[in-house]
Each structure stands twice: as C-alpha cells, then as structure tokens.
Amino acid sequence: MSLGTMTVARQQKKWRLSAATAVAEAIFAAFLVFAGPSWDATAADTLERVVVDPASGLAISGFDPVAYFSRGQAVRGRPELERRVGGVIWRFENEGNRAVFAEQPEIYGPQFGGYDPVAIGRDTSVAGHPQIWTIKGERLYLFYDEAARAEFLADPERIIERARQKWPSVAYMIPR
C-alpha cells in the first residue's frame, strides 16, 4: 500500500514509527562510535575479579597499572598513593597516574583482572606476574611465566578471543 492510499492518521502513525526507529538507530550508532571496537561486555567483571596479593591485599602486588603505559615498564606504586577501585587497593607511582586510573580503570587495569589469558583460554585461573607483561591493542596483559607470554605473542588475537569466550565461566570460579 502506498502512502497515497493510506488515511491521514495511518500516514502520521507510520511517520512517527519511522522517526522513532531512526532515533533509536542513531543512538545505537553513537554508542558504537563512542564505545569503539574495544568495548567488551566483560570489562566490568574484569575489574571485579582482580589478582590481589594475599599478604598485602594489593591489586597486582602493588604495581602501578598506568606506568606500564606511561613508562613502558613495571613500576611499584607508593603506599601514600593508593586508591580503592573495584573493591581492591591499587598503588600508583604519582598523583597523575592515580587520577588517570580513577577516570578510566577499565582502560588501565590489567585485562582479565591480571589473570593469565593463556591459562584462561584453557579454562583455569592462574594469576599473572606483574613483571611478565605486554600491551596489545592498548590493553595490559599479565602472564604467569615467560612461556605463556611467548605463546600469547605468537598469536595474540586468537588467545584474546579464546580467553574472552572462557572468561565468564573462569571468573565465576574465582572467589571475590
């Protein structure tokens, strides 16, 4: 049926539905632009299941998560520069790193909470060591040992995808 043979009321209803659909599509498109391809539904859960040193209670053994990006090295944070995020205590090298992390912990926190993505892909949780790490796709990954890091670097996309698939079931088994 063409618009020419519809009643005025039906034409207005059809136009309102089309306009509503267009608005919804625009909102979804904006979400995709701002969230970007790196958006990950497991990001929130990643920060809820962070590797915590049982002796000190510190996330990733007190290493500054932002320093991996800003300095390209593992740097211990300072006790006077702590911040509680995601239910755990993080330490930082300086005020700037602490402020940046507070704004975007999902960006600077280690992926999979600091658990080794190679192990996660094998359905197990093994804490990564904060001095065995890499940055891939602007995200930080920690590894149990150099062999796991080398395996990751040989095919990071495959290992990341497998770990993302397995993470919900593996994370479920990690005590909070």
Score class of each variant (00 low, 15 high):
residue 34 F to Y: 11
residue 86 G to P: 07
residue 175 P to T: 02
residue 45 D to V: 09
residue 101 F to G: 05
residue 45 D to N: 13
residue 160 I to Y: 00
residue 121 G to E: 06
residue 124 T to G: 09
residue 137 G to M: 02
residue 108 Y to D: 02
residue 104 Q to D: 04
residue 121 G to L: 04
residue 90 W to M: 05
residue 47 L to R: 14
residue 30 A to L: 15
residue 82 E to C: 15
residue 3 L to Y: 12
residue 5 T to D: 15
residue 24 A to P: 01
residue 128 G to S: 03
residue 110 P to L: 01
residue 94 N to C: 09
residue 87 G to E: 08
residue 126 V to T: 11
residue 111 Q to K: 15
residue 58 L to M: 11
residue 149 R to E: 09
residue 57 G to S: 11
residue 134 T to C: 04
residue 109 G to D: 06
residue 13 K to Q: 06
residue 65 P to D: 01
residue 144 Y to K: 06
residue 41 A to M: 11
residue 52 V to E: 13
residue 39 W to A: 12
residue 151 E to I: 12
residue 99 A to L: 11
residue 43 A to Y: 05
residue 69 F to K: 06
residue 94 N to Q: 11
residue 117 P to K: 03
residue 119 A to V: 05
residue 154 A to D: 07
residue 27 I to F: 04
residue 84 R to E: 06
residue 154 A to L: 08
residue 158 R to Y: 04
residue 8 V to E: 09
residue 172 Y to C: 02
residue 100 V to F: 02
residue 151 E to Q: 14
residue 91 R to P: 13
residue 167 W to S: 04
residue 149 R to I: 05
residue 126 V to H: 03
residue 115 Y to F: 15
residue 12 Q to I: 14
residue 146 E to L: 14
residue 117 P to D: 10
residue 163 A to K: 12
residue 127 A to T: 03
residue 119 A to S: 13
residue 109 G to I: 00
residue 97 N to L: 09
residue 151 E to H: 08
residue 10 R to Q: 10
residue 96 G to N: 07
residue 4 G to W: 13
residue 36 G to M: 02
residue 9 A to S: 12
residue 61 S to L: 03
residue 128 G to T: 11
residue 116 D to F: 09
residue 95 E to V: 07
residue 107 I to S: 01
residue 54 P to D: 15
residue 99 A to Y: 02
residue 24 A to C: 04
residue 131 Q to I: 07
residue 105 P to W: 01
residue 58 L to Y: 13
residue 151 E to T: 15
residue 38 S to H: 14
residue 57 G to N: 03
residue 151 E to N: 10
residue 15 W to M: 10
residue 172 Y to I: 02
residue 1 M to Y: 08
residue 160 I to N: 07
residue 114 G to A: 02
residue 95 E to H: 06
residue 103 E to D: 09
residue 31 F to Q: 06
residue 167 W to A: 13
residue 7 T to L: 13
residue 158 R to W: 04
residue 141 Y to A: 08
residue 151 E to D: 09
residue 46 T to I: 00
residue 8 V to N: 03
residue 133 W to I: 05
residue 43 A to E: 08
residue 11 Q to V: 12
residue 51 V to D: 05
residue 24 A to E: 01
residue 20 A to I: 09
residue 90 W to V: 05
residue 40 D to C: 15
residue 123 D to R: 01
residue 57 G to C: 10
residue 159 I to T: 15
residue 139 R to V: 04
residue 7 T to E: 06
residue 87 G to D: 11
residue 10 R to I: 03
residue 52 V to D: 05
residue 75 V to I: 13
residue 86 G to L: 07
residue 27 I to Y: 02
